[in-house]
Computed example of a mutant assay.
Amino acid sequence: MRKKIIIFLILLLMFQIPTNHHAYEDIDITKALVVEPYIPPEKSREELYQDIFITLLLPYIQAEVDKYYEEYLFTSPTVAPYDVIILDAERLNEYRGFDFRLKIELHPYIGPHNDVGLDYITIRVSPTVNVKIEKFEHIRSYELPPNYQDLIKKKLP
């Protein structure tokens, strides 16, 4: 019986499929861990509610964008509601109230959709604080076309 187990283990080790560690060298592990934001199905009730919600938050979002970009541009970039992506939404206080935190992604633009940057905004929504911008993160800047260079006060970071 013991011989059979030893022979079985030897055979198992002999026929083990070799692993190819080199096949994974080109994979960026940070990109593999990024979770794609959830996009609700088109024309669904969920999409409708999300669009209403973003529309209600848009004045707060636009004000924060205005505040950030006024140092860099002579005109304020526009935020389009259809271009706001909810990266994360959470209910705070373990379902004991209506206190929420969202992280959104947006691409403010000038003119016919010349993106000036990629920004993340963290927003808190609750009955007590109403709407509060907790954090504004400028992630990336984009070069404006030559005919929009006169709108630049100072180079974006």
Rank of each mutant, 00 (worst) to 15 (best):
I54K: 01
I54R: 00
T55W: 05
T55C: 00
T55E: 05
T55A: 13
T55I: 00
T55D: 06
T55K: 06
T55N: 11
L56Q: 10
L56D: 11
L56V: 01
L57A: 07
L57Y: 12
L57W: 11
L57T: 11
L57K: 06
L57D: 04
L57E: 03
L58C: 01
L58R: 07
L58D: 12
P59A: 06
P59R: 01
Y60V: 12
Y60F: 15
I61P: 12
I61A: 03
I61C: 03
I61K: 02
Q62C: 05
Q62A: 07
Q62K: 06
Q62S: 12
A63Y: 05
A63S: 14
A63V: 02
A63G: 11
A63R: 07
A63I: 00
E64W: 08
E64G: 08
V65C: 10
V65F: 07
D66T: 08
K67R: 15
K67T: 15
K67H: 13
K67F: 09
Y68Q: 09
Y68I: 08
Y68D: 06
Y69C: 04
Y69F: 14
Y69R: 03
E70G: 00
E70T: 12
E70S: 12
E70N: 12
E71Q: 11
E71H: 09
E71S: 03
E71I: 03
Y72I: 04
Y72H: 13
L73K: 04
L73C: 09
L73F: 14
L73N: 09
F74E: 13
F74M: 11
F74V: 09
F74N: 15
F74A: 08
F74G: 13
F74C: 03
F74P: 14
T75G: 09
T75K: 14
T75V: 15
S76R: 12
S76V: 13
S76Y: 14
S76N: 15
S76D: 15
S76E: 14
S76P: 15
T78F: 12
T78Q: 11
T78V: 14
T78E: 12
T78A: 06
V79E: 02
A80G: 06
P81S: 08
P81A: 04
P81C: 00
Y82T: 15
Y82C: 10
Y82A: 15
D83I: 05
D83C: 05
D83V: 02
D83M: 07
V84E: 00
V84P: 11
V84L: 00
V84D: 04
V84T: 09
I85N: 01
I85R: 03
I85Q: 05
I85D: 01
I85A: 00
I85G: 01
